[in-house]
């Protein structure tokens, strides 16, 4: 099992990138009561049968590791959501893409901590590949209501001259932390 909600999100985002997506969309919304996340991609998608199999922890399609018999990303998420009284969904169409969404109620004792959100975005944005990634982050504002900001991988990569050099990643980290300010 993962420790924090951010870890579940990164795992799902990695799946999206590995599915050959050209576009990945992440919405990460937190209110006082719950955390809701959706990750959508236009990667290779799954048939209904493949989708069912992806929820079986003792199944892997064998493309990443030939002799591996486990695939734990989605099963971890489903188990954690069920334990914490949350909800989750996986919608997928073969050749069109996949959307994974989940919601955790903060009041439940089994709800994992949110984790380090700027750290999640840093790791997600710097996953290798030529894809676009759009992130929308919504938070409860200090004075009531909500505030939001958006990030676009192509813009950040252009501003930083790529997202691989440690100095660029350190600057990106500062930038992402500053976006969490009210």
């Amino acid at each position: 099992m993962h420790y924090a909600l951010c870890d579940y999100v990164l795992d799902i985002v990695q799946n999206a990138v590995e599915a050959g997506a050209r576009n990945v969309g992440i919405e990460f919304a937190e209110s006082g009561e719950s955390t809701s996340v959706s990750v959508s991609d236009d990667g290779r998608g799954m048939t209904a049968e493949e989708r069912e199999r992806a929820l079986d922890p003792f199944y892997s399609d064998g493309t990443k590791h030939r002799r591996r018999k486990v695939g734990l990303g989605l099963p971890f998420l489903a188990q954690a959501a069920a334990q914490a009284g949350g909800s989750w969904s996986v919608e997928s169409r073969k050749g069109e893409g996949t959307t994974v969404a989940f919601r955790f109620p903060k009041g439940n004792v089994d709800c994992p901590p949110t984790g380090d959100v700027p750290g999640l975005f840093l790791a997600a944005l710097s996953l290798p590949g030529g894809h676009e990634m759009a992130i929308r982050r919504v938070r409860a504002a200090a004075g009531g209501g909500s505030s939001a900001y958006e990030l676009r991988r192509s813009e950040l990569s252009e501003a930083l001259g790529g997202l691989e050099r440690a100095s660029s990643l350190a600057l990106l980290r500062d930038y992402l932390e500053s976006q969490e300010e009210d």
């Binding site: 710097s126 290798p128 691989e164 050099r165 440690a166 100095s167 660029s168 350190a170």
Partner: peptide, 10 residues
């Protein structure tokens, strides 16, 4: 920072 490339893999 300028000398080091940091990547992720599976």
């Amino acid at each position: 920072g300028e000398q080091v490339i940091i990547r992720q893999t599976g």
